[in-house]
């Protein structure tokens, strides 16, 4: 399994990268850490004519606090965000998700934005971004735009990214005082893609449950309080609304059961953290 041929460009400025992407159209792809893209290249599921390596663009390699958001540039590796000193305080959901996210060996190279761009329906970072109500900054040669996470993921490994555009950064809302967060997943092997992953937030606006691995993209739902009579019915309705399918990893029925049980557990844990 070797990649097919492609031209390679290692630009020194973001403008140079964007010009190459504009020229390349659908045949050009950004490569950052490569932990999602290189397997696709090796299996020849992706055959771009041009790869644009953005890891030498210093402007994209920053983690910044901007108002009530943490802004993670397209060149920030997962291990760098994992080791960020205030992760536990500012992004406790991510601190809980990181141990499930691939392996030490892939987090060392893979970028945060790369995982968002890959948009695997069971991946932890897209789920976290959607559950927190984050956003993605996109840029082409002419303009910048900001898309809400929930609108960015449009289907199975499909996003709102247009030809000639690249992700410049992702925006994670900072944890608010008195909020609770929880993350859990079930997979066949530690570090594999999850069969089902759940992320929960409990704050003064109520409970929110994010679910990955069932529908073709991560989904987020508001929920009634845990002690509400309607709680079980609501979470069951959600499980049935998700277009669960049978595949070699799990049956649709098992996935729905995981949504009910993991969903309840993560919501409980998030509520406990809040208290």
């Amino acid at each position: 399994m070797k990649p097919a041929s492609f031209d390679f460009l290692c630009p020194e400025t973001t403008e140079e990268a964007l010009a190459a992407l504009a020229e390349g159209g659908g045949e050009a792809r950004v490569i950052a850490g490569g932990q999602s893209l290189v397997p696709m290249l090796n299996m020849r599921l992706a055959r771009p004519a041009l790869l644009v390596d953005i890891m030498r663009l210093e402007a994209l390699r920053r983690i910044e606090t901007s108002g009530d958001e943490i802004v993670v540039g397209a060149g920030v590796r997962q291990a760098e965000l994992e080791a960020w000193p205030t992760l536990l305080r500012d992004l406790p959901l991510l601190a809980a998700a990181f141990p499930c996210l691939g392996h030490v060996q892939t987090r060392a190279r893979g970028t945060v934005c790369g995982s968002i761009a890959h948009a695997d329906p069971s991946a932890e970072l897209p789920l976290s971004l959607v559950t927190l109500g984050g956003a993605v900054s996109l840029r082409n040669r002419k303009q910048k735009r900001r898309v809400k996470a929930d609108d960015f993921f449009v289907g199975m490994m499909a996003t709102d990214l247009a030809e000639g555009e690249m992700i410049e950064a992702v925006h994670f809302p900072k944890a608010r005082h008195g909020s609770g967060y929880a993350f859990r997943e079930v997979g066949r092997r530690h570090g594999d893609f999850a069969i089902v992953a759940c992320a929960a937030v409990a704050d003064d606006r109520g409970l929110r449950l994010g679910i990955a691995g069932v529908d073709d993209r991560p989904r987020v739902f508001p929920l009634p309080a845990l002690d509400d009579d309607q709680f079980d019915d609501t979470i069951n309705d959600i499980a049935w609304s998700l277009n669960a399918r049978d595949d070699i990893h799990a049956s649709a029925r098992y996935r729905r059961e995981l949504v009910r049980s993991l969903g309840r557990e993560t919501l409980k844990e998030a509520s406990r953290c809040r208290a």
Binding site: F8, I31, P39, M43, T106, R109
Partner: peptide, 29 residues
């Protein structure tokens, strides 16, 4: 496996363990 699952090709890049099969040679320039 050549798609990052088995770990046999793990080397150290810039002091971190990493999959050599998920790294293009040009990326370690």
């Amino acid at each position: 496996c050549e798609h990052g699952v088995c770990g046999a090709c793990t080397v150290q890049i810039d002091g971190r363990p990493a999959r050599a099969c998920l790294t293009l040679a040009q990326q370690v320039r």
